[in-house]
Design a protein around this nucleic acid. Structure first.
Lengths: 359, 359
DNA sequence: GTTTAGCACTCAATATATCCAAGTGCTAAT
DNA sequence: ATTAGCACTTGGATATATTGAGTGCTAAAC
C-alpha cells in the first residue's frame, strides 16, 4: 500500500494536480485539450497526452473508456492528499461559527461532537460523522439513587471515564427512604472502583447483609446492572448528519451503490471498525477500496480522533465520494477536531486561573 | 377529506381490493385481463374495464397513461385502509419476538421504543420510526450532584415526567464535599417542583445565602441549567431505522424523490409536526399528499402514539411508499404499540403482587 | 338493462440505426 | 523532446421503427 512517488517529474505533478482539481469541481473526466488552457506552463495537448498515458501506466489515472478523458484513480487521490494539496484557508464566517462552539465548557462531549459534525457537514457539504466512544472497560466511581415512585428508583452510575449511565430498578415492593439511602451508601462502599473479577459471591452476600433484609433483594438486579455497564461492548455511538447531501453527487446516482453505503451507515459496525482501528491524533483518510469494507467502495472516509489521555473518546469526520474537496475537508476537520481536542486537554487539568480571569 | 364510499357495489369493492392487493405485491399497474383470472367471481375483461372506468371516475383508481392498467389513487388506498383490509395474522415467530421485548420492565422508554421500531422495521420491511417525546413543561423533582473531579461536578436532575437530565457544572475553583452536599440539599429544598415563574431574584439570593459564600457562585449557572431543562422545546427525539430499505421499492428509484424524503427525515421537524398533531391512542395513517408536507408526497406514514395518562410520550410507526402492505403494517404497529402501552399503564400503578409472584 | 366479444386505437417500453463530439494514440516533421 | 496532424474509438444523444399490453367503444347476445 505504500507507494513512492518521488520519481514524478514536476510537470507530471502539475498535470496530475490539475486533473484532480478539475475533476473534483467538475465531476467529469478531464481531457488533454482542457489542460492546455488550464496549466501554469504552456505545453501542447499532444505532450499532455503522452504524460497522461504515463501517469495512467503508473496507476495514478484511469480512463473510463477509450475515448474519454482521464479520471484520478484511488492512488491518484491518495497522492494528491499526501503531497499535492495546498492548505485550504477558511473564511472568517466559518471561523466564527467554529469558535462559538467550544466556548462554553458546560457541554458534554457527545453534544459537542454532534454539533461539530453538523457544522462540518454544513461547511463541507458532505455527510458528517460523529463518533462517541465508550472506553471498553471501566469501573464505576460513584452511585446515586433517585426515587421515581413508590416501587421503583433510578440507579445513576458514574463511570471512570466520566460518563453517566442510568438504570431503572423496578422492585415489586416499597422501599423506604432510609433503606434507599443505606443502599446507596453500601453500593458506594462495596462497588466503587471495583472491577468485575472482584465481585465475588461473598461480596454480594456481604452487601445483602449490609443493606438489611428489607432491600436485600435489590442487590442482585443492581449487580447485574453494574455488570452490564462495565461489560458493555466498548463500541460506542456513531451518528451521521446530512446523509441526503450525498445524493447530490453523481457518483451516487447509481442507486445500488448508494444503498450499499447507506446500509453500511445504518449497520455501523463496519465503519465503527474502521474508526476504532485508526491512527490516533492524526487525520485518517480512507480512499475507496482502501476501506477494507466492500460496500464503501468508491467512497472516501476522512476523520480525526479525539483523545483523552491515551484513550480515543471520539472522532469527527466526513463521508463522501472519492472526488472530494480534500483541501477543504481536511482543513475543516483539522481545525474543528483540534478545537475540541484542546478543550478536552484543558478540561482535565485544574483550570488555568489566568484564562478564567480573562472572561 | 371525509369520503363516503357506501354506494360502492360489492363487485366494485372486490375489483378495487383485488387491484390494490395485486399492486401492493407486484408494484405494476393492474390490467383487466389479469383480473379476470384473479377474482372470486368470474366476469369478462370488458365488464371489468367498465367497472374500472367508473372506479376511476370516482377517484379511486388512476391510470399512469392511456394504455396502462390501473393503479390505486391515494383515495383508493385510504378506502382500502378504512374498509377493505382484512386483519393480518402474525406468525408465531414474529409474536415470539415481540414478547421478548416488553418482558423486562427494567428498560427505559426510549430504549424500548427504539427496539420496538427496529423490530417493526424487520418485520414489515419498511423504514421504522421511533418518537420519544419530552413533555414540554416539566418541573424538576429531584437534584443530585456527582463529583467529577476537583473543579467540576455533574448535576443530575429528575423531571416530573421521570426523565433524567444531566449537566456538567464546570466551576473554576475547588468545592469541598460538604459544600457540594449543602448545595444539593439547598437545590432540593428551593427548586423542587417549582415552575419558572416562581424562580425570582429573591429566591436566587436566598439560595446563595443558604449555600454559603463558598459556593454561591454556582447558583447562577445551575439556575440557568434548570431553566434550560424546563424550557427546552418540547419536541422530542425522532429516530429512523432501516432507511436503506426504502430503496428497494421502485417508487424511490427516482432519486430526487428519495432525496426529498431523506431530507425530511433528517430535518425531522416536518415529521415531528405530523406526529405531534396526531390522534392519540389510535393508528394514524397519512397517505401521500394527505401529509401536508410536500416532500412526503407519494409516501405513507403510519404510526401510533404511546401515552402516559393523557400525555403523548412516544410513538412508533413506519414510513414507506403508498403501495404498502397495509394489513401487515397496521397489525404490527397495533400489536407492538399496545404491548408498550400496556407496559406503560401497568408501570404507573403499584405493581400487581400476583403477577410478580408468578415469576 | 347488463354482459360480452371484437376491434381499432394509444402509448410506454424496447430495439435499431445513425450521427456526433470528445478524446485518444501514433506517426512524421520540427 | 516536442508538436501538429490525422485516423480511429466510443459513449451518448437523437431519430425511427417495432412490439405488446391495455384501453374504450360498438354492436351483438343474454
Amino acid at each position: 500500500m505504500s507507494f513512492e512517488f518521488k520519481d514524478l517529474s514536476e510537470r507530471k505533478k502539475l498535470i496530475l494536480k490539475a486533473i484532480i482539481d478539475a475533476h473534483i469541481s467538475g465531476g467529469e473526466p478531464v481531457g488533454s485539450k482542457y489542460l492546455t488552457q488550464n496549466l501554469p506552463i504552456s505545453i501542447s495537448s499532444a505532450t499532455i497526452r503522452n504524460e497522461m498515458a504515463e501517469l495512467e501506466e503508473m496507476g495514478l489515472l484511469e480512463q473510463p473508456h477509450t475515448s474519454a478523458g482521464r479520471v484520478p484513480s484511488e492512488y491518484g487521490y491518495r497522492f494528491y492528499v499526501n503531497s499535492l494539496m495546498k492548505g485550504y484557508e477558511m473564511t472568517m464566517k466559518e471561523l466564527d461559527e467554529l469558535n462559538r462552539l467550544t466556548k462554553s465548557k458546560q457541554e458534554k462531549l457527545d453534544k459537542i461532537l454532534e454539533s461539530a459534525a453538523k457544522l462540518m457537514g454544513n461547511m463541507t457539504n458532505y455527510t458528517a460523522l460523529a463518533f462517541k466512544g465508550n472506553t471498553p472497560t471501566t469501573v464505576i466511581t460513584q452511585f446515586k439513587t433517585m426515587r421515581m415512585g413508590q416501587s421503583k428508583f433510578l440507579l445513576v452510575m458514574m463511570t471512570s471515564d466520566e460518563n453517566v449511565q442510568t438504570k431503572v430498578i423496578n422492585h415489586g415492593f416499597e422501599v423506604s427512604d432510609e433503606a434507599l439511602g443505606r443502599l446507596e451508601a453500601v453500593l458506594n462502599k462495596y462497588l466503587c472502583n471495583v472491577d468485575l473479577e472482584q465481585v465475588t459471591l461473598s461480596l454480594i452476600s456481604e452487601m445483602e447483609r449490609a443493606v438489611g433484609i428489607e432491600s436485600a433483594a435489590l442487590i442482585n438486579p443492581i449487580v447485574k446492572g453494574v455488570y452490564d455497564v462495565i461489560n458493555q461492548t466498548g463500541s460506542g455511538e456513531l451518528n451521521f448528519q446530512g446523509v441526503d447531501r450525498l445524493l447530490q453527487y453523481p457518483e451516487f446516482s447509481d442507486i445500488s451503490r448508494f444503498r450499499g453505503l447507506l446500509g453500511a451507515m445504518e449497520r455501523k459496525d463496519d465503519i465503527l471498525d474502521i474508526v476504532s482501528h485508526s491512527k490516533k491524533d492524526e487525520i485518517n483518510v480512507y480512499i475507496g477500496s482502501e476501506n477494507s469494507v466492500d460496500v464503501m467502495n468508491n467512497s472516501t472516509l476522512i476523520f480525526r480522533t479525539i483523545t483523552q489521555g491515551d484513550k480515543v473518546v471520539g472522532a469527527i469526520g466526513v463521508i463522501g465520494p472519492c472526488r472530494m474537496d480534500y483541501s477543504k475537508v481536511i482543513a475543516t476537520i483539522d481545525y474543528l477536531s483540534q478545537n475540541i481536542q484542546q478543550m478536552m486537554d484543558s478540561d482535565n487539568l485544574l483550570p488555568d486561573k489566568e484564562s478564567e480571569d480573562k472572561k
